[in-house]
């Protein structure tokens, strides 16, 4: 039956080409809260043409997570256009959005969002399963080895430390093998040492040809990025390589 569902998932996915390109044109997002309107994003233009490690910087409330949600098609813009690999997804159907999330983007959440009922191995396998990848269990085992958790395969999330949980979450996102990786404050709840390990993992993904988009308020992280986009009050206030050039993770301190 599971094979049927996997086949169905593949078959039900619209023909969406997969790639690393992300385009946001004049994107705005406004929320109506009670009697007032809150602007989360305004006039955002962002283009990522090829694989890169992109850090989106900004203080709390600057619109970082909203931006990530727009790219991940979890939210729709009030104005403007969001395109993945050249295809305008702004007015795509719910079905297309789900299919694209299965095939193009993967999320790493600040609070991990692991499934408590699944072991580490199964959580990672979930990623491969959703993407309908064959030999999902092997992929998951391999993924956990890559994040240094080969000895924690059968542990449930509550039996893992925060850093371990985040590594499982990253392994889960990687298990989808989707070209765009979206990480929301991936080191936010981690100690420095674990945070650096996570960053290195994400860097590896960019080097391997994926678009990795990390949103954070930690300016230190931007030092290892290929490109740093700074948000303030919903607007992009700067976009370019890190000031002072790209550093090594070993040089980071926070």
């Amino acid at each position: 039956m599971d094979q049927d569902i996997a086949t169905h998932l593949r078959a039900s996915s619209p023909d969406l080409s997969t790639g690393t390109r992300v385009d946001l044109d004049d994107v705005a997002k406004r929320y109506v809260v009670g009697d007032s309107t809150v602007t989360a994003l305004t006039e955002v233009n962002l283009h990522v043409d090829e694989a890169a490690f992109v850090v989106v910087l900004g203080p709390s409330g600057s619109g970082k997570t909203t931006l990530l949600n727009m790219i991940g098609l979890l939210d729709t813009p009030t104005d403007g256009r969001v395109a993945l690999n050249g295809r305008d997804m702004t007015r795509s159907s719910r079905r297309e959005q789900f299919a694209l999330r299965r095939r193009s983007v993967s999320f790493i959440f600040q609070t991990f969002n692991l499934f408590p009922g699944l072991t580490a191995l199964e959580n990672v396998q979930f990623g491969a399963d959703v993407a309908a990848r064959p030999a999902a269990a092997d992929i998951a085992r391999d993924g956990l080895s890559r994040v240094g958790l080969a000895d924690r395969l059968h542990h449930f999330p509550h039996q893992l430390s925060g850093g371990e949980q985040q590594r499982v979450a990253i392994a889960r996102a990687l298990a989808t093998d989707n070209p765009i990786l979206l990480a929301d404050e991936p080191t936010g709840e981690l100690d420095f040492r674990t945070g650096v390990q996570i960053l290195e993992l994400l860097q590896e993904q960019a080097e391997a040809g994926k678009t990795v988009l990390v949103v954070t308020h930690n300016r230190e992280l931007s030092r290892v990025a290929d490109r740093v986009i700074e948000l303030s009050s919903g607007r992009i206030v700067s976009d370019g390589p890190p000031v002072g050039g790209k550093s090594r993770t070993a040089d980071l301190r926070w």
């Binding site: 569902i5 408590p116 509550h158």
Partner: peptide, 29 residues
């Protein structure tokens, strides 16, 4: 996190972690 409540008892936990259910993970969830 979603892990602090409703933890299974020790033996059941071990059994669960070692029991591989056939099929996709989300189906066995």
């Amino acid at each position: 996190g979603a892990y602090k409540s409703a933890r299974p008892a020790g033996r059941l936990l071990t059994l669960l972690s070692r029991t591989r259910l056939p099929g996709r993970t989300y189906l066995s969830m």
